[in-house]
């Protein structure tokens, strides 16, 4: 993501957050199996969503735990996205499209109008669900994917994502109790 300067501007981020730029997976080049292309695109969408949602959190939350988690999401998912792009190139696959999915757009839209504890609770609930969803995709591909390079990406991603799941659930518990 950080390689694409167009994505860094606030206006572009806002456009993405508003779901203006929701794309379905790349169809320009058909290299790799459908399973592999779907996995690459799903992981790219998940990284893009995590980074956008974390940007919202840094802009809209004043909770220390939430901001700390969001900062970590930006760092980890930016690194994961770079690994994904590099590995896709190495495996001879089309570069993943930096966009979010239709359901992720709905989630981001839902964050837009919230502030304070309401924002924190909703952001963390979304994070718990989105990470479980990404974990299911990564574990499925890690177990049965047909491309060795991407299987290794899936394993790395699954480890990072399970760490995020383990991290977000207690923070969510704390926020929900407030």
């Amino acid at each position: 993501m950080s390689k694409d300067p167009a994505l860094r501007t606030p206006a572009r981020l806002l456009a993405l957050a508003l779901g203006v730029c929701v794309l379905s997976p790349a169809i320009a080049q058909e290299t790799g199996s459908r399973q592999t292309r779907d996995f690459v695109q799903s992981l790219a969408q998940s990284d893009t969503f995590e980074i956008l949602a974390a940007q919202s959190a840094l802009a809209q939350s004043s909770d220390r735990d939430v901001r700390g988690f969001a900062q970590m999401m930006i760092t980890d998912h930016t690194a994961m996205d770079r690994l994904l792009s590099d590995s896709a190139a190495k495996a001879g696959l089309a570069p993943p499209v930096k966009a979010i999915g239709a359901d992720q757009a709905l989630l981001l839209n839902g964050l837009g109008g919230l502030t304070g504890p309401e924002f924190d609770k909703t952001y963390l609930q979304q994070q718990a669900l989105a990470h479980r969803s990404a974990l299911a995709e990564a574990q499925t591909y890690a177990a049965s994917g047909d491309n060795a390079v991407m299987r290794s990406v899936a394993k790395t991603a699954a480890q990072a994502i399970s760490a995020h799941v383990a991290m977000v659930e207690p923070v969510l518990g704390k926020a929900a109790a407030r």
């Binding site: 998940s46 359901d103 989630l107 299911a136 995709e137």
Partner: peptide, 12 residues
């Protein structure tokens, strides 16, 4: 539904 969508099915 894809595996990822199934895990969060109905969340939106």
């Amino acid at each position: 539904a894809s595996q990822g969508k199934l895990v969060t099915f109905g969340a939106t």
